[in-house]
Design a protein around this nucleic acid. Structure first.
Lengths: 229, 229
DNA sequence: AGAGGTATGTACCAACTGGTGAGTTGACAC
DNA sequence: GTGTCAACTCACCAGTTGGTACATACCTCT
């Protein structure tokens, strides 16, 4: 992720490979857009919306600042595009969840574990979400592509809970969103508050040596709660 | 906490009352410092470190921008002072926790509930913590007043757990910090991620109508987990 | 081949931002 | 009274920031 000045060298594609067109490409709108989005995502996740600098993003591009404004219009629209792309990527991954074949208790434990893995694998996404919350979600609220869309993980959870309730295994004084909130809270907190927690308590919540333990705590937590009494 | 232009009117003290001196005060270092800190706290919590503007803070002061530099040195030092004051205020409140008279199970439920109340009552503090995490806790790590200091809430929790373990009531495959992490995660997430959660799932985690329910979920969650098996 | 729109690079700017130089005023000690 | 220093005001600045005017090169369609 080193800064690469716009030295006119052969640009490296950000994202997918070369288009069927030909071996030598100089003008490629899709590639330019994708590269801007990739660099901007890293920069906004790293510094926040106000802290990110258009000039800094441009400096890390093989193209120029002018292209950011040509394709995205401005800093705010670029940021919204970054959020939309990030959320859509995450939703795509969540759709691959498959725990239907397990009994409800094991399915819940597995879903919690996969959510755990998934959050750990995408710290930049969690940073973007934290940043967007600092801005009171004003950008995603205005984005048609983001507001109101359902969440695959929540659907899966709903199905598991329905089966659990039907079998009389789970307590019925919570709904799917409450349970999802508990799981998300644990997973998000671990990454989002890693740094202050580390400084104050002297323990890195993302320490690989404690990973399995933390993952088990989450599974036990949710299962114990749902099956209690 | 309304914006007050420097209109030369009688300044209202930020913090404590008038000093024994007399009824008319014009020069008062403590009061000026306190006012700057109060306005800066609101501004940094509202906009983040990079988003906050020294000129904006100065505009809301009954004194001038020059005084910010006179008393604090610069934007970053002002921000660190804000963090130190906020953490110290919160620690003071946590020291008032008193659940020693309850049996371990009820003490845990009570501690979780009080932590819940406490987080709900201080959204600005949670915003500051989120903001500081975006900056990877670099400021509190450098602050001697903040790094490494113990946490009263954690001490209380440790005592309760010790009693619970001694009585054979609690599982012993977790430590106090794990449990604290679970409680914090739930409480912090509710406030810190309120906005994106609201936009995406259409439910306000801080809705007063659901407050009691959420508080009960947290209590049940922690108790069910600790007493499981 | 050449018309014409898409894509791109260069140079530049006005407004803002954090920060400061230098002088002024009030309160307290003696 | 007056010396003295902390507390305070005012005007100012240099660097940065998001944004743009303008010229131009490339690719596709005919």
């Amino acid at each position: 992720m080193a800064a690469r000045p716009s030295d006119g060298g052969t640009p490296v594609a950000a994202g997918d490979g070369p288009v069927p067109g030909g071996p030598e490409r100089t003008r490629d709108a899709d590639r330019t857009r994708a590269e801007i989005l990739a660099v901007a995502t890293a920069e906004f996740a790293d510094r926040g919306y106000a802290g990110a600098r258009i000039n800094e993003i441009a400096g890390k591009l093989s193209t120029t600042k002018r292209m950011i404004y040509y394709y995205f219009g401005g800093k705010e629209q670029l940021y919204v595009a970054v959020l939309e792309a990030a959320y859509s990527r995450i939703r795509g991954l969540e759709q691959q969840l498959d725990v239907e074949h397990l009994d409800p208790v094991e399915a819940i434990r597995e879903l919690a574990g996969l959510t755990f893995d998934h959050h750990e694998a995408h710290p930049d996404f969690i940073r973007l979400v934290s940043i967007e919350n600092i801005h009171r979600a004003e950008h995603i609220a205005r984005s048609e592509a983001l507001s109101g869309l359902a969440n695959p993980a929540l659907d899966v959870l709903g199905t598991i809970l329905d089966r659990g309730w039907a079998a009389g295994l789970f307590r019925d004084d919570v709904d799917a969103l409450d349970v999802h909130q508990v799981i998300s809270a644990f997973c998000v907190f671990r990454t989002a508050n890693r740094h202050t927690f580390g400084v104050i308590f002297g323990r890195d919540m993302l320490d690989p040596a404690r990973r399995d333990h933390q993952r088990r705590v989450l599974g036990d937590l949710v299962v114990a709660y749902l099956t209690a009494r």
